[in-house]
Amino acid sequence: MTASTPISLALALDVYLPVGIVVAMAILFAVFNLIATKLLGPSRSGQTKGITYESGMNPVGTARKRFNVRFYILAMTFLVFDVEIIFLYPWAVGYSQLTPRSPEATLFLGRIMFFLAASVVAYLYAWRKGVFRWE
C-alpha cells in the first residue's frame, strides 16, 4: 500500500472551492425564487382558504400523529446497511489494486466476507421477523 500523500491547502481549495461556488449558486437560485414569487404573486387570504386541504372535507384532527412503527424499524435496518456500505467503499478501492490470488487479497476478501456475513445474518433475522412485510 502506498503512503498517503499530504493534502496541500492549494489542492483542497482547487477541489473544494468549486463545490462552494455550486452551493452558493444553488442557494441563491432557491432564495431568489422563494422571494420573487412572494413579491410577484397576488396575496389574498380568507377564513376558508386557510384551512388544510383534505379533498373538501373539514379536516379531522392534526396530521402530527403517531405513525406506523414499521417505518422506524425499516430505518434502523437501513442504518446498519448504510454504515456497512460506507466501510465497503474504501475496501473496494484497496482490494481492487491488490495482486489477484495473492495471500493478501485472500485476507482482504475473507475479512470483508466475514463482515458482510455478520450483517446478512441480521438482515435475514429481520426478514424472518417480517420487518419487510407490509400487509
Partner: peptide
C-alpha cells in the same frame, strides 16, 4: 411566478 404563493394557516 405570477401565481399566489399561499401559506395555509396550520
Amino acid at each position: 411566478f405570477l401565481k399566489e404563493d399561499y401559506t395555509p394557516r396550520n
